[in-house]
């Protein structure tokens, strides 16, 4: 009967499966030297990268970044680079006016000093840091 023949075929194949497994195990693919070399090279490369990363992590930070951090913090506290630039410009302008005042400003200074001190000559003679003797003389 056809059905019995099919069952026999199936049983034979099922019994022979162990033999097929054994044959496949005996003919298992083995890694080539090239593949083993690639795998080992990967291992050494990964290990070297890990060591380099660990060294980088424990290396002490240089002092310069800390100073940069101070100035960056100061700049941000003032209001940024533009505000800092404006502050520096105003400072330099003040210093310049102090050393070399323009002529109209000199007249204004004279007028103010006269109204305060009552004498034009008093401006040049004004002693802003009097000596100890002059303080004693004034009692």
């Amino acid at each position: 009967m056809a059905m019995a023949e099919t069952d026999d075929d199936f049983s034979d194949a099922f019994r022979g499966l162990d033999a097929a497994f054994a044959a496949a195990r005996a003919m298992a693919p083995a890694p080539s030297e090239r593949l083993l070399s690639r795998v080992e090279a990967d291992a050494l490369r990964v290990a070297a990268a890990r060591v380099a990363a660990e060294r980088e992590a424990v290396r002490p930070k240089p002092a310069q970044p800390a100073r940069a951090g101070f100035w960056r913090g100061l700049s941000e506290a003032i209001g940024g680079r533009r505000a800092l630039a404006g502050l520096i410009t105003a400072t330099l302008a003040g210093v310049w006016l102090g050393f070399s005042p323009p002529t109209p400003l000199a007249g204004l200074t004279q007028m103010v000093s006269q109204s305060v001190l009552g004498s034009a000559a008093a401006v040049e003679g004004l002693d802003l840091i009097p000596t100890f003797d002059s303080v004693l003389n004034q009692g």
Partner: peptide, 10 residues
Amino acid sequence: ALAAALAGRR
């Protein structure tokens, strides 16, 4: 399934 696939090749 393997046995069935190999059945015709005994």
